[in-house]
């Protein structure tokens, strides 16, 4: 039942070369319930990754507090699995070693037990038989599967995903989205999923939070009342099309702000 609470969060970064700071996130308030799937949608550069990194514990807030499962976030930890946009798996480790990394550094499992768990999760993400490969021998989609498996093997209650399928080709992206839906239907976790793709947000999320351009604020939060389990066919649903239209207009307004150079 681990939920995420963002309470009055500001994040400021020092401007390189200058003494001033830039405010990237401005008074972010958002709650994600336990086992809920929320998508964070916004124009490029609005601070989506920063918000996710904050919950992951990579970036501290300037003001406000992030809490997961009722405990304030103080740093990264295995209770919050992060899936990165560029997979970010360890290039010198084989696929199996990458997946085994979490349990092995925590000293939780070893030997046969660990091997079994690793091959179970490789199987679940569709990588059975690739355990001995090095990352550079894999396609982009396969590397993302490794990134997902190495997190799932820790069985974290919270999944934080930062445009994990953004760099994939259209066909692979759909396959990966359906894989994620299938995994989530079987094994519910609290998910915060960052994307700038409207279709992806509606296909996956229970709710979609739209962010405004700089400084990043939560502009609207939309419910997605589409039935589950969902698949790619959900995109033909009239309700989907209507929601997509609304989100399209919300986003277009924000993109305009970005391109007319509002702010600085």
């Amino acid at each position: 039942m681990a939920g995420i609470v963002l309470d009055g969060i500001d994040v400021e970064f020092a401007k390189p070369g200058a003494k001033t700071t830039v405010r990237v996130l401005d008074d972010i308030n958002l709650e994600v319930a336990g086992e809920e799937f929320v998508c964070l949608l916004g124009p490029s550069g609005c601070g989506k990754s920063t918000a996710l990194n904050l919950i992951a514990g990579f970036v501290p807030p300037t003001r406000g507090q992030a809490a997961v499962d009722g405990r304030p976030v103080t740093g990264p930890g295995p209770d919050r699995g992060v899936v990165f946009q560029d997979a970010n798996i360890f290039p010198w480790m084989t696929v199996a070693k990458n997946v085994a990394f979490g349990p092995s550094v925590q000293g939780r499992l070893s030997g046969r037990e660990l091997d079994e768990r690793v091959s179970h999760y490789l199987d679940r993400v569709g990588l059975a038989g690739f355990g001995d490969h090095l990352p550079h021998e894999l396609s982009g989609g396969m590397r993302q599967r490794v990134g997902l498996a190495r997190v799932l093997v820790n069985d974290p209650p919270v999944l934080l995903m930062d445009e994990p399928f953004g760099a994939l080709d259209a066909q692979t992206r759909i396959t990966m989205q359906e894989l994620l839906l299938e995994l989530w239907d079987r094994d519910r976790k609290t998910v915060l999923f960052v994307t700038h793709d409207i279709d992806e947000a509606l296909l996956l999320g229970d709710r979609v939070a739209v962010m405004s351009a700089r400084p990043g604020r939560i502009k609207t939060v939309l419910d997605v009342p589409l039935p589950r389990p969902r698949s790619y066919d959900a995109m033909a649903d009239p309700a989907f099309v209507e929601l997509k239209n609304r989100l399209f207009h919300e986003l277009r307004d924000e993109e305009r702000h970005v391109h007319t150079g509002e702010g600085e």
């Binding site: 514990g57 990264p76 295995p78 360890f90 820790n154």
Partner: peptide
């Protein structure tokens, strides 16, 4: 980012 990933994995 690899260091971040390792910290995130525990």
């Amino acid at each position: 980012n690899l260091v971040r990933a390792a910290a995130m994995l525990g």
